[in-house]
């Protein structure tokens, strides 16, 4: 749980977001250029309601009139993910189903290689600030469900997990400041605090994560390092004594993540993940390997995309 609505709309591991950033920024910047070109040619974009209102209020002779800049953002979302064994044999696959315009994930279904449904997750959006995710087994019976409460920005504030008999199992609660997640707390079914995690930022970059006991004692912490482009390159896990437990390093190619390595406390590599990205930076093949570079699993991901149009003055 990342504590963000993204987990329900665009099921994408956090590590892939790095690649996504660059891709989307590229797209946005290119469309800024395109928009500027169109503006120069006096081809006004279709104004939005707010843009019209702005036009009315600023239609004073001699005043410079700002045209709204049209921004088209291409958003990619996975529709299928196939898992293969190391020898290339197909294993399970997931189908992601969305609403008509591809903005909301409605269902995630896991099938075996012989097309038998193994499990499904159905998302029901009760309002703009609440949703339920229901987890069904292969027999179609409800196994468990989650109640999710969000703020007006789509950030998850609370996630309550229930079993299929409506017994509360655990609660995760999140806090945000200036749009950044600053704390995650886990509570037991009896509402006792089990754990608290603080997210500490330098500027907008998350640089330290501290995991605390219910009594507020530091249990473990993570130190995150970035390259000059603001891309995460190292995430080191320390115990409360400040000794390294393990770490992860990230390598990029053309701005996209292509190798992630898990290191033991002595620094040796224990696991690797290799990413093959499409031209938009979406990982289309993810290969999980052990320390000996033996392939344990290969994921193939297929995407569809939608365009989102917005205007900026």
């Amino acid at each position: 749980m990342t504590g963000h609505w993204r987990a329900y709309c665009l099921p994408m591991p956090p590590k892939e977001i790095f690649m996504k950033i660059k891709s989307i920024l590229k797209i946005i910047s290119s469309f800024f250029l395109i928009s500027a070109f169109f503006t120069a040619c006096a081809t006004a974009p279709i104004p939005s309601e707010s843009a019209l209102a702005a036009d009315t209020s600023t239609s004073v002779v001699g005043q410079v009139k700002k045209e709204p800049v049209k921004i088209i953002t291409t958003v990619f979302y996975p529709v299928k993910e196939e898992s293969y064994f190391g020898d290339g044999t197909k294993d399970e696959y997931r189908i992601f189903s969305y609403n008509d315009d591809g903005t909301l994930l409605l269902k995630e279904e896991l099938y075996s290689s012989d097309d038998q449904l193994q499990e499904s997750i159905v998302s029901e959006y009760l309002s703009s600030e609440s949703a339920i995710r229901k987890f069904y087994g292969s027999d179609g019976n409800l196994n468990s469900y989650e109640k999710i409460i969000m703020d007006s920005n789509g950030n998850i504030l609370k996630n309550e997990k229930f079993d299929n008999k409506d017994n509360l199992q655990s609660i995760s609660a999140y806090e945000y400041k200036n749009g950044l997640k600053i704390n995650w707390k886990v509570y037991s079914a009896s509402n006792s605090l089990l754990s608290s995690t603080d997210y500490i930022y330098t500027g907008k970059l998350l640089t330290r994560i501290e995991s605390l006991s219910p009594g507020g004692d530091l249990e473990e912490f993570f130190v995150l390092k970035y390259n000059s482009n603001g891309l995460l390159v190292e995430n080191t896990h320390f115990n409360s004594d400040g000794k390294i437990e393990d770490s992860k390093t990230y390598k990029y190619k053309d701005g996209f993540l292509f190798i992630e390595e898990q290191h033991r406390k002595n620094g040796s590599v224990s696991r690797k993940v290799m990413y093959q990205n499409d031209k938009n930076g979406n990982p289309v093949e993810i290969v999980f390997m052990d320390a000996g570079d033996n392939v344990q699993e290969r994921l193939v991901r297929i995407y569809e995309s939608r365009e989102e149009i917005s205007y900026e003055k």
């Binding site: 956090p14 977001i17 950033i21 989307i24 903005t103 909301l104 749009g179 993570f222 896990h237 989102e308």
Partner: peptide
């Protein structure tokens, strides 16, 4: 909801870069 989705794209750019490690660790 669409507004949230749009917002989330922006947030994805700047804020959601959270490693899974701390989740695993907790």
């Amino acid at each position: 909801l669409l507004k949230f989705i749009t917002i989330l794209i922006v947030l994805m750019l700047v804020t959601s870069i959270l490693p899974a490690n701390e989740v695993s660790a907790v």
